[in-house]
Amino acid sequence: MSYPSWVRQHLAALRALLVLTAVCGVAYPLAVFAVAQAPGLQSRAGGSTVSLRGRTVGSALIGQSFTGRGGTPLRQYFQSRPSEAGSGYDPTSTAASNLGPEDIVDTLPGPETAAAGESARLSLLTRVCSRSKAVGALEGVSGARPFCTTGGVGAVLAVFGRRAADGTVPHPTRVVSLNEEQGVVKAPFIAAYRGVPVEPARPGANYADGLVVAVRGGAPADPAVPADAVTASGSGLDPHISPAYAALQTGRVARARGVTPGQVKRLVQASTDGRDLGFMGEPRVNVLRLNIALDRKYPVRG
């Protein structure tokens, strides 16, 4: 029996729909599910969940915070690296700050915008500086970093005056510390720059005409606080920290749990993964697994 061309076209489309539905909507998902149940893959397919005392406490693939009320770090736990995913380690809002190394100037809101509830936008440099200061205070080491003030903000100046051919300002007429707010700091991080007194920034003021100068300061090139302690990962969900950051925290955790640093160090080594395939990436420590191992072997006596 011969059908009109438009009927044949619709029948062909219907057959294609049924075949693709069976293959892509039924066969393929079932095949993927079957492969995921293979030994060695089942845990990963199930989210790599980690349990403690019969209760799921997280995933080995997604980081989390170990803080108390108000975001205060719990001293008995190793701390994860910072996260820019939502309010921190939010798997539904995985993201990075998207700020680059040239983002060094904070935006201080003026009186009108502050009254409207707008807060300051912190530059990447100030975020790194403030985190380094906080980690240093927690671990009992210097949080000093190049281009950071002792107050934990970026050491950045706006230098005004006639510019030379090379773009510099050899004879400044005015100098402003861009990331130190007037009325918040008692005095700028340096008193003078090339003989000109340094003044703090006024919120809402426009300093775009000034030459932006970052001041390195006297901090060591290799700070005591590792880089992963002050920078977030690209996903914001990284469950690992570097062995250097773990080593920095070992003494604090040992004191909080009443054990020796050597006992904690052995657990750190057991929770350290090597390079993938022996040559890709860097060694790393899974924070959740390490903290669970601590709770199991050296629980905090309450």
Rank of each mutant, 00 (worst) to 15 (best):
V32W: 07
L61C: 05
S130Y: 09
L290Q: 00
G281M: 11
V128D: 09
V215N: 10
G140E: 01
G58Q: 00
A192E: 11
R174D: 02
A229P: 07
R252V: 07
S130I: 09
L41I: 11
L20T: 15
I62A: 08
N291I: 02
L125V: 10
P197E: 01
R194P: 03
R131D: 14
V153N: 09
G195P: 10
Q42W: 04
E180L: 10
R266Y: 06
K265S: 15
T21D: 13
L178V: 14
R275K: 12
L124V: 09
V253T: 05
Y298N: 03
Q37S: 10
L11I: 12
K133E: 15
S59I: 13
G204H: 01
R266T: 15
F147E: 12
Q42T: 15
L18C: 12
G151I: 11
A144P: 04
P197H: 01
S271M: 12
I104H: 02
D222T: 15
T168A: 14
Q76K: 07
A45I: 03
A144F: 03
L237E: 00
F66L: 02
A116W: 09
D209I: 04
L74C: 07
D273K: 14
Q79V: 03
A219N: 00
L294P: 09
T149N: 14
V153C: 05
